[in-house]
Structure formats: structure tokens, C-alpha cells
Amino acid sequence: MPALRHDARVDLDGYDRLCAAAEDGERLEYIDGQVFRMMVGGSTAHHALTRRLDGLIAARLAPGGPCASFRETMRLEAGTARFYPDVFVACGDGVVPDPDTKGVAGAAVILEVLSPSTERYDRGRKWLAYQRLPELRHFVLVAQDQRRIEAYHREGAGWRYELLQTPDAVLRLDAIAVTLRLDEIYAVVPTLATESEPRPPLAVFGPAQVARIAGLKGLAVPPGIEALLAELDAEECAAAVACLVGTEGLPRKEQWKNILPERLHCRLAAALREIS
């Protein structure tokens, strides 16, 4: 589903007017005064995986329980932000859609099936906005071109990053008491599910992205820190991004100590001296 950014900044009333005038099949998302146009028409694999995830989760939620599963046709309202996640689970009072906006307030679990045109948006601006949801416990990214699932699980003030690739790997969504195996998720995409060898993992995070996210989180990134970040490999970058989510409230040195791998800690003090 290609995402096209709407350059003009608007308020919520302006966003609602744009939604009312939107073409059939067009969904508008809203973050910090900016509108993102999400065009329906993704790949067959994207649609199949979205339906599969929603079906598996809905079937395993406790009957008559406090949680319900929704697909991309339902809007998620997160404060002043508005989203159409591929699949999400809401619990408690937020389960009943608002009769006026037809939106659901809050989510405990959000799952996004990655597309080439929206992956950067899902991993960046959208993920940062999702983190503001106090009730969110699991954020899951599902690849459609290989058997690969990435999950962020809230733990205290931060998030734990998990990479799942083997067919018997299990995605545990403890907040809603649901478990999903990779092989059953990808059974709807046979050409992926029957591969004997997994493809090499994509480099989803790089040093530049870590530095950018650190800046968005309010951390200074002087040249010395940039030099340390440049030495991170893809796995270390993914771990650094996960740590960045929960860095608020710590002294500056401790923040970067958590973000950078231990092998670089010996050079951290010198790099921090560049920050006035």
C-alpha cells in the first residue's frame, strides 16, 4: 500500500474534512499535524498475511473476553493521531468503536505487514507515534517477501527487540494470551513457507537511522558519537533502536551506555565530552 505524504499541515478538523472528501479505497493517517495517504491495493501476499493474522488472533482470543481484533478498515485513534494498522487488538473500553468516528481508542497489540513503499514509514514516524500509546504492549512487523517477523515487547520503561525466522519460532503476545507460530502464519504464502533455507536477513536498521532516531528522542549526537554508531552492524543497530525507546529519565552517559554495545563503552567518555 503506497503511502503518499500530504505536505500541508492541518488540524484535526481539517483532517476530518480530508477524510470526508477522500476517494474510495484511500485511507488517511494523521500524525502531528501531517496527513499520510494510504492507498489500498497491496500485493496478494500482503492481503493474505493480513487476513491470516487477523483470523488466527481472533480465533484465539478468549471468547467473551475484553479484547477484540480489527483489520485495516478500522481506524485506530491514539490521542490526536489517527492510523489504519493492518491488524490490531484493543482491550477494555476501547473495544467498542466510536459511533461518530467509527474509530477504536487504543491498542494492546499492533501488527504491520511490511511493503516496500511503506516500510520506512512503518519503522520510523509511525513506530515512534505508536510508542505514545500507554496500553500498547506488542508492536510486530511481518515481512511478506521472506519468513521474518520482528517484534517489540514493552518491558518496564523500554522495549525488548525480538527477531523470529525459523519455521517453528513462536510469536508470544502475552498481553492478550495469544501465541502464533511462523509456519502457520506463512502457510498462506506457500512459496515462502516451503523454502528449505531462509533468505539472508535484510539490513533493516543502519547507523544513520540510529542517529536520526536518537535525535528525535532528544539525544545529542556529536561527531564522536556518530563515529561510534558508524561501527555498529545491522544486529547492533536493531538492538540500539530498541534501547532508544526507553531512554527517557536516565543521565546522558547511562543512556548512551545502554544504546551502544559493550565493546564501544571504553571510548564513550571521550565522545560525550564533545557535548557542551
Rank of each mutant, 00 (worst) to 15 (best):
205 F>K: 06
178 V>M: 08
190 P>C: 09
169 A>W: 03
218 G>Q: 05
176 I>R: 01
214 A>N: 06
182 L>Q: 01
177 A>S: 13
171 L>E: 03
193 A>K: 15
155 E>V: 13
179 T>A: 09
185 I>H: 13
208 A>Y: 00
190 P>H: 07
161 Y>P: 04
156 G>K: 15
206 G>V: 01
215 G>F: 06
170 V>P: 05
192 L>H: 05
186 Y>C: 03
209 Q>M: 15
173 L>A: 07
157 A>Y: 11
212 R>M: 02
198 P>C: 08
160 R>P: 00
161 Y>I: 01
167 P>W: 04
173 L>I: 03
154 R>Y: 07
201 P>N: 07
155 E>R: 11
157 A>R: 15
193 A>H: 10
160 R>S: 03
153 H>E: 07
146 Q>G: 10
172 R>Q: 06
168 D>M: 12
153 H>I: 08
201 P>S: 14
210 V>C: 11
183 D>T: 11
194 T>G: 10
174 D>C: 04
168 D>Y: 04
158 G>D: 06
167 P>I: 13
157 A>F: 12
198 P>I: 13
176 I>V: 15
161 Y>G: 00
209 Q>S: 06
166 T>H: 11
159 W>I: 02
144 Q>C: 08
194 T>I: 13
188 V>Q: 14
165 Q>T: 14
168 D>G: 10
171 L>P: 04
203 A>N: 11
150 E>M: 12
149 I>A: 04
175 A>W: 08
193 A>Y: 03
170 V>H: 02
151 A>G: 00
212 R>W: 12
199 R>G: 10
144 Q>L: 01
205 F>C: 05
162 E>F: 03
190 P>E: 09
152 Y>K: 00
171 L>T: 03
205 F>L: 03
184 E>N: 05
218 G>M: 05
160 R>A: 09
159 W>Y: 08
203 A>S: 03
155 E>T: 07
153 H>Q: 13
181 R>N: 11
164 L>E: 06
149 I>H: 10
179 T>V: 02
160 R>I: 10
201 P>A: 04
217 K>D: 01
147 R>T: 07
207 P>I: 07
146 Q>V: 08
172 R>I: 02
214 A>G: 12
194 T>K: 09
160 R>V: 05
211 A>I: 00
209 Q>P: 09
202 L>W: 10
145 D>V: 02
218 G>K: 06
156 G>D: 10
212 R>K: 12
207 P>K: 01
205 F>Y: 14
154 R>G: 00
155 E>F: 01
185 I>A: 12
180 L>H: 10
144 Q>V: 02
186 Y>D: 09
214 A>V: 15
202 L>G: 00
197 E>N: 08
213 I>Q: 04
176 I>K: 04
180 L>D: 12
173 L>C: 12
189 V>E: 12
161 Y>D: 02
211 A>E: 03
163 L>W: 13
193 A>F: 09
213 I>S: 08
184 E>Y: 15
206 G>M: 09
217 K>Y: 10
194 T>S: 14
162 E>W: 00
186 Y>V: 04
144 Q>F: 12
205 F>H: 15
172 R>H: 01
150 E>N: 02
166 T>A: 15
205 F>E: 14
183 D>C: 11
146 Q>H: 07
202 L>H: 07
170 V>C: 13
212 R>Q: 08
214 A>E: 07
155 E>Q: 14
185 I>Y: 01
165 Q>C: 05
172 R>V: 06
201 P>E: 04
214 A>T: 05
